[in-house]
Amino acid sequence: MRSSARTVNNIWTGIFYAIAFAVIALLVYLVVEIISRGWGFWDPAFLFGRPSNTMAGGGIGPQLFNSFYLLILSLIISVPLGLGAGIYLAEYAKQGRFLNFVRLCIETMASLPSIVVGLFGLLIFVTLAHWGYTLIGGALVLTILNLPGLTRVCESAIASVPQNVKEASYGLGATKWQTLVKVSLPTAMQEIITGVILSAGRVFGEAAALIYTAGLTTPMLNTAADLSSPVNPFNIFRPAETLAVHIWKLNSEGIVPDAAAIATKSAAVLIVMVLMFNILARLAAKTLDKYNKGTSRKKKVQKSVDSVQKTA
């Protein structure tokens, strides 16, 4: 009886290990598969080249640019809003029915299917505002998708600042806002920055919400054009197809002879970008952590301690 319970235990331990290794193997398989199929994606002629509608050999230059530009636009809008809402929830909101309602709204917003958010964008920015398919419409829709996550990250980062640190600041006569800006925010910055970078990775790969807001086309970009002209790359009121949308379009209606090749290479580029965002988030977390703990200046401190000891 006893030994059979042990055997069962051992079998289950084996099963758990098998599942864990299978999941790791799956990720490795997927990444290797994408990168090997899209081998050669770093060719500058592909990365920065103009796409071709009819002939093979086109690049993804405009799409890549659009993806980054849209990411930056949406971060410019969503980071302050998310930070503000996070501060509100962590510091100012009073417990009660209204706060409960705000949380319900955040949860609802977070669970909205991205296509529904995209359709909302179509309704408001494209149709009602008469903007048509625009970068700014896409950025606003990405903001809606991004905001709940950012708010939660900022809230939990600010709420996790130790109470005694804040009390020390109040004790020195600082007001609530001063404490927030000079004490809480710097302490919470590491978590916030990591959260922002990770959310940036998600925004970079979003496509469903952009089909009906930023559109499926990009005009022939020309940096020399006037800013109000739709061919100026920085005009926020021009249609812009991002890299993720490009992959979807190539798959569903691609007529270029090498559509499959372009799509695989673009997928490889997207994966590499996501990997880079992940690594960047980790690096940022580590550096800031070191900075906060003061260990990046450890040597100096150690030296001065040594010299003090010597003189003593």
Partner: peptide, 20 residues
């Protein structure tokens, strides 16, 4: 190992999953 793997799986864009 597993946590970073899961984080990366979250990060892979849905069009890439579809394409794969």
């Amino acid at each position: 190992f597993l946590k970073p793997v899961l984080e990366l799986l979250v990060g892979i864009p849905s069009v890439v999953y579809g394409f794969l």
